[in-house]
Amino acid sequence: MKSLLRSKCEEAMVDVLHRAKNPLTLGEIVVLIHKTAPSLLTGASPTKSLYSMLLRREGFRAKHGVALLFTVSKERGSLLYSLANIK
């Protein structure tokens, strides 16, 4: 069974969202992750890579009845990410 532990990217995203006062878009999250850990998200489209990783890992958690790490809301056509109630 696939590991339910958080990936390094997810840990970085949790740290960014924990410090943020408001929900953020993935683009904003990527910029903040790059400031603290520039080697985590590399490549031509890091925002798309992060989105893909989140979609797979959160889908896996939902499928297996594990609490989700992030909540997503839509505002003015943008997806905003915030922390779910995690321990």
Rank of each mutant, 00 (worst) to 15 (best):
L69V: 03
L55I: 07
V66K: 13
Y51A: 13
E11Y: 08
S3D: 15
R56L: 13
S78F: 07
G59S: 14
E58W: 09
L26H: 07
I29V: 14
T71L: 09
R57W: 00
I29R: 00
L68V: 09
V14D: 08
K2D: 15
L40D: 07
A44M: 02
G43S: 09
Y51G: 06
K35M: 13
V66A: 15
T42H: 01
K2N: 11
K87M: 08
A84D: 14
I86L: 13
L24C: 03
I33N: 05
L79A: 10
E75K: 03
A44P: 01
K35C: 07
T42I: 09
H18S: 11
Y81H: 03
R57M: 06
N22D: 14
H64K: 09
T25E: 15
N22V: 10
L68R: 15
I29W: 00
H64R: 09
S78D: 08
K48R: 12
N85I: 07
S7M: 11
G59M: 12
T36N: 14
K2S: 12
I86K: 06
T36Y: 06
V14Q: 06
L24T: 00
G77W: 06
I29F: 02
R6K: 09
F60W: 07
R6Y: 04
A12L: 10
S52I: 03
K63C: 10
M13D: 02
S3F: 12
M1E: 14
L41T: 03
K8Q: 11
I33P: 01
M53Q: 14
T71F: 03
A44F: 02
G43V: 09
L17R: 01
K21F: 12
M53W: 04
K63I: 06
S73L: 02
S82L: 00
L80G: 01
L41P: 01
L80F: 02
K48V: 02
G43D: 14
K8C: 02
E28F: 02
V14R: 05
E58F: 08
K63T: 09
L4I: 07
A62T: 04
A44S: 05
G77L: 03
I86V: 14
K48S: 12
G27N: 15
H64Y: 11
V14C: 13
L50F: 10
F70N: 04
P38Y: 00
R61V: 13
S45P: 00
A44Y: 02
L5P: 01
G43C: 11
A12T: 05
M1V: 11
A37Y: 09
M1P: 12
K74T: 11
S7W: 11
R19L: 11
K2H: 12
